[in-house]
């Protein structure tokens, strides 16, 4: 350990979710990410923070953009990055997962980035490996780096979390993005509203300290931030909403509904968007209100901050074991 070792930011050696993070941990990550936004805009984007470290991206569920974002983040920090495409095996998933974990662990990675279609799978895997694990999205549970990049985007637009009114709209029930954002925004002092038809609201949603609205027009009144969620087309086949045209009519963000929000309200979307289903192109492409592209940019920076912060804990523990 060198005497110049940077201060630790995270308590845990994994980032499995936002729930459990303190406000100072979140702020620490956002502060660090601000530095990486600057680095990413420089001509020389390379840092040596993770030199010698190995990062494996293990995606059981396809996600080009999240995987690319993590890959870029690791490479810019100087890590060796390996993408493992895992074919989703329908047989004995639990056993396969743990076998995979044991195999990977034997390769002695330092950072393992995992996405899995089942809630809790990333945590299960984290118990079986010796490296740092980052949850890149598990089922309908959490997607912590998405919430962090959303927070960074809000903060970089000069908004204060305390008292900020944020509406999260759409398929809350199946959304890990919504859950992570609810935890983060509430922890930072923002007021969260959930807007969805009852078929897309999770049970006891009101127990999370959020205000619930089934009428989007009511829910959008006076909000500072409108976060749209992607409506998976399988929600239609499973009869949770009757049709995309009805969904767009009542829950799609168009100019008329957006005008009910506070003047200057920002529109966010984790992507990829279903235009004409949950969001109108007129709004999505309006750079005055839409910060969707900034979210993507900030995503790389926040992931660099997370990898950096976790690697500090590796150093602290005197790893490798």
């Amino acid at each position: 350990m060198t005497s110049a070792a940077p201060a630790p930011i995270l308590q845990s050696s994994h980032l499995l979710g936002i729930e459990g993070l303190s406000a100072s941990e979140i702020t620490g990550l956002l502060d660090l990410a601000e530095e990486y936004v600057k680095l990413n805009r420089a001509a020389d984007k390379k840092a040596a923070t993770l030199r010698g470290r190995t990062q494996i991206n293990l995606f059981f569920e396809n996600s080009t953009r999240t995987q690319s974002s993590f890959e870029l983040a690791g490479k810019r920090l100087g890590a060796d990055v390996l993408n493992m495409a895992v074919k989703n095996s329908s047989v004995a998933k639990g056993e396969t997962l743990l076998d995979t974990a044991a195999t990977l662990n034997a390769m002695r990675p330092d950072l393992l980035i995992v996405r899995h279609q089942d809630s809790g799978a990333v945590e299960l895997l984290s118990r079986k490996v010796d490296c740092c694990v980052v949850n890149a999205g598990d089922g309908s549970h959490e997607h912590p780096t998405q919430a962090l990049l959303d927070a960074l985007t809000i903060r970089r637009r000069g908004r204060k979390f305390e008292g900020l009114v944020v509406a999260i709209c759409g398929d809350i029930a199946h959304s890990r993005v919504a859950r992570s954002n609810i935890h983060l925004l509430s922890r930072m002092g923002a007021r969260v509203r959930l807007i969805a038809p009852r078929t897309l609201l999770p049970a006891d949603a009101d127990r999370f300290g959020c205000e619930i609205f089934t009428d989007m027009r009511e829910g959008l009144k006076g909000v500072d931030i409108v976060m749209m969620l992607r409506l998976q087309l399988e929600r239609m086949t499973s009869a949770l909403v009757p049709s995309t045209r009805e969904y767009f009519h009542f829950y799609g963000l168009d100019r008329e509904k957006l005008n009910l929000a506070k003047p200057g309200a920002l529109v966010m979307h984790p992507g990829p968007m279903n235009r004409g289903v949950e969001i109108d192109s007129d709004v999505a492409d309006d750079l005055e209100v839409s910060v969707i592209q900034e979210q993507v940019e900030n995503g790389v920076a926040i992931r660099m901050a997370v990898l950096d912060a976790l690697s500090r804990n590796l150093a602290k523990a005197g790893r490798n074991t």
């Binding site: 038809p197 009852r198 078929t199 009869a239 949770l240 909403v241 009757p242």
Partner: peptide
């Protein structure tokens, strides 16, 4: 689901 959706409206 139909009842929950109807209740929404």
């Amino acid at each position: 689901r139909a009842l929950a959706y109807a209740a929404t409206h």
